[in-house]
Design a protein around this nucleic acid. Structure first.
Lengths: 229, 229
DNA sequence: TTTAGTAAGTGTAAATTCAACATTAATAAA
DNA sequence: TTTATTAATGTTGAATTTACACTTACTAAA
């Protein structure tokens, strides 16, 4: 019968998180070296099981917090993966989430305890189960989202330079962008605050620092603007 | 422990399908009046439970087939819904899929047996559980997809007029489109075959019929073209 | 057979957006 | 004070998008 509630078909639900970070070397993801079975010693996404009294979004948040100590992070559900033998131990369906975090903010301590490490997208190791596929999927989605609305600010420190922002977008989209065109597009969105302060690390001249203006951004979002980079 | 496989937290996984169709009256969805508990007598999406030996995509296909008799239909996974009490009988996570079908092709018999009916998007009844939310979500996604690549052909009969195509897009995007601009954009994609045949229903003059050229379309898709309507 | 009516079919010009490109400005270090 | 280094800035041509209205082809009715 199509609509019977049968406990015979109950399954485990896992949540796996693709955690993106960004630094001078480009776009990175956070992976752990598993010190538990199955696949002990291999690399995987961070993940865990959904609890009976928990919704998926919260499970994702809990897992992210467990491994990084972070709160209030932008996460988005991606996809449910359900191949029969994707997990060799028990039938497990996994729902993936991706998160964008400022790589400077995570808790070093926790990362170390869990044998977690940041890897550049380009040279990440092979992952267990279908986690490679999840990562590819997440990268596609991130590119996509980025071309529609400017998420990605989550990946930068609070104050950032135009160059940092440009490099972030170049890393996400994995293509070069014209500096002048990029800056004028970003400026035309009017979602940044230009500070009086300069960052003197990068040059003699120094470059102005900006912050992200969340109110203006939220306002714009309602009108569904498109960022054509 | 974060990573233990505990059967205590196993849950039921449901699949719910948002089935879109299109006719002269606009965009429609297929709903059933439940003759089973819970919520007997109320309207809902068609759905069912994932079986232990089945992947989600196949469950969605199976469910669609059960209610419509159709095969080989474009379906896309949408989202996993996991509110604790979304289903009052047992903890159930539902993964939604949406499908586009040609409203003429479905099996009348089956539809009748299952008390299924087509409803215009605008005046669909209130649905059980979180199904209203699922529908809204699916409409957003459909609009979105449509603006990127021309799905939507699935919703038309094999031979169709430019006017029908235009009206389909207007229904999906729920805005008026300029006839001449629309036609020239569609033509520039070169994915239609213009037939010698005319449809004489709509006017004295008659309007040319077209078919969708699947090969050319697949070819184009590789280049990720954008349809800017 | 002529006429009237209806939707189909078609093109152009203005406005906007996009893409390409190079020079000057500010500063710290030598 | 000179030098070296990166930041900051604007313009022009090309491409795309939008707005817009008349003629054509045909059928049905007179």
């Amino acid at each position: 019968m199509l609509n019977s509630y049968s406990s015979a078909d109950k399954v485990l639900l896992a949540v796996d998180c693709i955690i993106f970070g960004f630094d001078h070397q480009g776009l990175k993801i956070l992976l752990i070296k598993r010190d538990f079975e199955p696949e002990r010693g291999k690399w995987s996404l961070i993940g865990g099981f959904l609890k009976r009294d928990e919704i998926l979004d919260n499970a994702a948040i809990r897992i992210l917090n467990t491994y990084t100590g972070l709160h209030d992070i932008y996460m988005e559900q991606l996809h449910a993966y359900s191949e029969i033998d994707r997990d060799p131990v028990d039938r497990t369906i996994s729902v993936s989430y991706y998160a964008l975090i400022n790589i400077e903010n995570h808790n070093e301590e926790l990362i170390k305890n869990y044998h977690a490490e940041w890897f550049s997208i380009a040279d990440a190791p092979n992952l267990i189960f279908d986690h490679n596929e999840m990562v590819q999927h997440a990268i596609r989605r991130l590119r996509y989202r980025t071309s529609i609305k400017p998420i990605g600010f989550e990946l930068l420190p609070e104050k950032f330079t135009m160059r940092q922002l440009l490099e972030l977008y170049e890393a996400i989209l994995s293509k070069e962008l014209d500096k002048r065109n990029f800056i004028s597009k970003i400026n035309s969105l009017e979602i940044l605050n230009k500070l009086d302060e300069k960052d003197m690390q990068s040059s003699r001249k120094g470059s102005y620092l900006y912050t992200f203006n969340k109110e203006k951004y939220e306002e714009k979002l309602l009108n569904d603007f498109v960022l054509n980079l």
